[in-house]
């Protein structure tokens, strides 16, 4: 479903990604873990080409996005992203946030997109907020709206870049529950997170990144109980005290 082949990304002299290879089969729930600055965001943003790799190939759902004139916008319709800072559209109501792109981008009929939007808002527990504006919601509620917005595109792939890092502690759980619930379904998911509990509970696979490279790759059990690299052990000992 997702294939990164020898992907590097440089920002000037800084090498954010160094020759990364990664293949994510359909339906897999992949969690990316790693210290700050290790390239997690850059990696996940290469999947939907918000970041253009300096070299290497990105193939998503059979389409090579790094090819010249690749239909990037088309592929993005089925690759939803949830951001750390929610990035809801502040001038639109909650309902409009969820229904806008299906209507404008995919050409879904307005009534149909709105109805589906209400279904997804209900699923994330926010049907009563449909007519509010994002600024009137708590952080946790905003992030759940962002998830509903992503779901209303009926994506094959969902990318989460630290979806709970900007939230107050008491709101982290309500968002994680929604994502864990989603992970029961068939969508391919890539989640950058510092929530080890989530990785243990919902992931099929964990990769650990350091200095622009993937240095550990395996099941959650392998990762937490039997890490190979000293760098991983050190990271875990710090985070799982």
């Amino acid at each position: 479903m997702i294939e990164l082949v020898d992907v590097s990304k440089h920002f000037g002299h800084l090498k954010a990604l160094r020759h990364v290879d990664l293949e994510v089969p359909a339906g897999q729930k992949l969690v990316i873990i790693g210290p700050s600055g290790s390239g997690k965001s850059t990696l996940i943003r290469c999947v939907n080409m918000l970041e253009k790799p300096s070299s290497g190939r990105v193939i998503v759902d059979g389409v090579e996005l790094t090819a010249l004139r690749a239909p990037v916008a088309k592929v993005r319709q089925s690759v939803a992203m949830v951001f750390q800072s929610f990035n809801l559209y502040p001038h639109k109501t909650v309902l409009e946030n969820v229904a806008l792109a299906p209507i404008v981008v995919c050409g879904v009929k307005k009534e149909q997109a709105t109805e589906a939007a209400l279904t997804y808002l209900k699923r994330v527990g926010l049907s009563d907020k449909a007519d509010k504006y994002p600024a009137q919601l708590s952080g946790g509620q905003q992030q759940r709206v962002a998830i509903a917005r992503a779901l209303n595109m009926h994506p094959k792939i969902m990318l989460f870049d630290e979806p709970t890092s900007a939230l107050d502690p008491e709101m982290i759980q309500e968002v994680l529950e929604v994502i864990i619930d989603l992970a029961q379904g068939g969508i391919t998911m890539v989640v950058v997170t510092h929530e080890m509990g989530f990785a243990k509970e919902a992931a099929d696979r964990v990769v650990f990144m350091d200095e622009g490279r993937i240095i550990e790759d395996g099941t959650p059990e392998h990762f937490f109980e039997n890490p190979q690299h000293d760098r991983t052990k050190l990271f875990l000992s710090k985070i799982l005290r």
């Binding site: 939907n48 690759v79 951001f83 990035n87 809801l88 792109a101 917005r149 595109m153």
Partner: peptide, 27 residues
Amino acid sequence: IGRGQLEAALSQGFTYVGAMRYIIIPQ
């Protein structure tokens, strides 16, 4: 307008011009 708005719109499959028209310029 923060870069996140353009990125959110692009990630949903908006074109650059579409993102401007529906998301950025209204704000």
